[in-house]
Simulated assay, not measured.
Amino acid sequence: MNDSTWLHWSGGKDSAYALNKLTRQGGQLAGIVTALSSEFRRISMHGVREELLDAQAQALGLPLQKIFIPRDCNMKDYDSMISAEMAKLKTIGATHCGFGDIFLKDLRAYRQKQMDACQLETVFPIWREADTATMAKRIIDSGIKAIVVCVSGKHFDSSFVGREYDLDFLNDLPEGVDPCGENGEFHSYVYDSPDFSQPIPIKLGEMVDKLYTPANNEEDQPKCGAKPAWDTEFFFQDLQL
């Protein structure tokens, strides 16, 4: 890796672990890239407020490139917006783009195709590093601390959202749920990491139960790997500074 690498940053544990591994290998990132809802100013899928993302970038000491996605954006338009923003980064010297994906082959292929079109090399620092049960414990042991901010109602009840991502959480996971949530079962927000200059002082806000309408056609299905369609209910834990 070189200092022209930008990491796609969701704000969650996998992104933080990927960044940590890159830095432990002696590399220096140019910055992080995050997609947010333009309407709600929250990280896409995670529901985390923009100011908490800003706090992470400040703690990392890295430039942050935000990509604002409009409501009801289809996959074709989403791809175009991501590609346009990555092309801008290339004009200022970006050569590589990193991702925190673990084992979903079709998602990796999708990212590679998208970055190839932008003439950017892809980097997957934690790709199949270990089975996800082992990797989950490595994330915790690394000193990364995270709160679970979103869970799928297909797999969890609301009691799981807002919990610390720790060994107790892993031990309580329902059968069939990936320990890293790689299939989209849950998402997290990192409030402390070995790569942060200081912890982020967060407060728990309200828990929100949201229902979503499934995508109507194959083109608009999310590139989520194992699942052919959206889950329709999610529980979100709001966080505040």
Rank of each mutant, 00 (worst) to 15 (best):
S83D: 04
A84R: 10
K137F: 05
E164R: 10
K113A: 15
G27K: 03
K13H: 07
K13E: 11
E39A: 14
Y165P: 05
S4Q: 15
S38E: 15
A57N: 04
C150N: 14
L204P: 05
I139F: 13
H155S: 06
D178T: 09
K88A: 10
V149W: 15
A59N: 08
Q237K: 12
K105P: 04
P125V: 09
F234T: 01
D54I: 05
V177D: 04
K145T: 14
N183D: 08
A109Y: 04
F68L: 14
L64A: 07
Y191C: 03
G98C: 00
P214T: 00
D192C: 08
A59K: 06
K154F: 08
S158C: 10
M115I: 00
M75N: 11
L167Y: 09
L53H: 06
K145Y: 11
R24P: 03
R108M: 05
L53R: 06
Q221H: 12
S38D: 14
S4K: 15
E85V: 04
L36R: 08
P179W: 10
V161N: 08
Q112M: 07
Q237A: 09
F68V: 10
Y78E: 05
D54R: 07
G153D: 00
D141T: 12
S197E: 15
P201D: 11
D106M: 07
L107C: 14
A133L: 14
L170S: 13
L239N: 04
F124M: 12
